[in-house]
Computed example of a mutant assay.
Amino acid sequence: MKSAIVTSALLAALAVTGCTNINPHYDAAKPHHTAEGFRNNYPPNPAYQRPELGFIEGWISRLKNWTTPSDSREPSAPILGVAPDLPFVSVNRSEPALTWIGHATFLYQTGTGVNILTDPVFEERASPLSFAGPKRHQPPGIALAALPRIDVVLISHSHYDHLSVDSLRALWRQEGGPPVMLAPLGVDLWLEKNITGGDRSKIVKLDWWDKTSIDGMEIQLLPVHHWSSRTPWDRNATLWGAFALKTAKSSFFFSGDLGYSKDIADIAARFNGFDLAAIGIGAYQPVWYRNSHVSPDEAVRIHRELKIKRSVGMHWGTFPMGQERLDQAPIDLAQARREQGVADDAFFVLRHGETYLPASNARRNGEQRSPSQ
């Protein structure tokens, strides 16, 4: 009964924002544009065919997945974070460093004096409602209020576990002024409406393969196989993508959410490898999720095909988005490394709050903490 009530409440809340989509960024010369929104470059993998469900039935199924507790998703062992090394990250301006805050949220310090935050979500739930939806299993590795000043925010797409109203509003009001926000087409308009109060001075909109330069750093939005929505009525109304960053000191690939597709070969053809990457490894069960998220095996393939020196697995252990156990992804990642001949220190996971220093292949660890802290 409780699950049915929550599902009804979610549908009612989402219905408020339902409307007919018109793509204000539509360019008929670009195949991935449609009059209503956007589409992937390549067809979905038929091996990962989603069960046929009607429109309403599909959303009810998704909402039940969000609201129904599942013992099968509980981790096989406690997921322990570490206290962040705040004295280091708060002043670090000269050394490339990547700190996992949780899910797809990282603090990436470029080593050139720029602090970047990816897909910032600090809320208790990745949901349109505060009382229902995927609940955070592990606290943020760094509290929002404890972050150093953020210069740039990268937003990969509009899903609730990647795009948060409250987190972005807090960053917009941060001491020292708001960060520059880089967003795929359509998400820029959402930011203007919901975050900046109509101010576009700090919003940079990007289509696939578009580039921009900020503080001597080149940033490019890359095509990946995924989708977008925040309601049952706006599917693919806004664009999605991965990011490539290049500075004088290093290069970085941020996958956002993606299913494995020929887009990876297209990206590989344009880049001569990356020094560091954050790649999703979770929410790959049931199998039809893999048209939207890669499995650890596919993530290792991406690592190899993009010629990445060091990769960090993300999108696991924070929100229960898939049906696998919350700690299953790192276990399957280890097996995938062995099967594909990738060294353990070439593709690994961090603890929530842990900082990785790619130049020295070292980590900065704080005190271990329990999931309840």
Rank of each mutant, 00 (worst) to 15 (best):
V6M: 12
A9D: 09
V16T: 10
I22Y: 06
H25T: 04
Y26I: 02
Y26S: 01
T34H: 05
A35Y: 03
E36G: 04
G37S: 07
F38I: 01
N45F: 01
A47K: 13
Y48M: 02
P51G: 09
L53N: 14
F55I: 08
E57N: 10
E57Y: 06
G58D: 13
S61V: 00
T67F: 06
T68C: 11
P69H: 12
R73W: 08
P75N: 11
S76K: 12
S76A: 13
I79H: 03
V82H: 04
P84N: 06
L86S: 07
L86A: 07
P87M: 04
F88A: 00
F88R: 03
N92V: 02
N92K: 11
S94H: 06
T99P: 04
H103F: 14
F106L: 12
F106I: 07
Q109M: 03
Q109R: 15
L117A: 10
L117K: 02
D119L: 09
P120H: 02
E123Y: 01
E123K: 05
E124R: 10
A126V: 08
P128M: 15
G133R: 03
P134F: 13
K135M: 15
G141R: 04
I142R: 07
L147A: 08
V152M: 05
I155M: 14
Y160N: 11
H162I: 00
L163S: 08
S164G: 01
S167F: 06
G176T: 08
P184W: 03
L185T: 08
L189D: 15
K193A: 07
N194Y: 12
S201R: 14
S201F: 04
I203T: 05
I203M: 08
S213P: 00
D215P: 00
G216V: 12
L221F: 02
L222Q: 03
P223C: 04
P223W: 01
V224N: 12
V224H: 09
V224D: 11
H226F: 15
S229I: 00
T231G: 13
P232T: 14
P232Y: 05
W233Y: 15
N236F: 08
A242H: 02
A244D: 02
K246T: 15
K246E: 13
S250R: 09
F252C: 07
F254T: 04
F254D: 12
D257C: 11
A268W: 00
A269Q: 03
N272A: 15
A277C: 05
G280N: 13
Y289K: 06
N291G: 05
D297T: 02
D297K: 08
A299T: 01
A299G: 14
V300W: 02
V300D: 00
I302L: 05
H303F: 05
R304Q: 15
K309T: 13
K309D: 14
S311F: 09
M321V: 13
Q323D: 15
E324M: 06
Q328E: 15
A334L: 09
A334I: 06
Q335Y: 11
E339T: 14
G341I: 11
V342F: 01
D345T: 01
A346L: 01
F348I: 05
F348V: 02
V349T: 14
L350F: 09
L350D: 06
E354Q: 15
L357C: 11
P358N: 10
P358H: 08
A359E: 15
A359T: 14
R363P: 05
S370V: 05
Q373W: 07
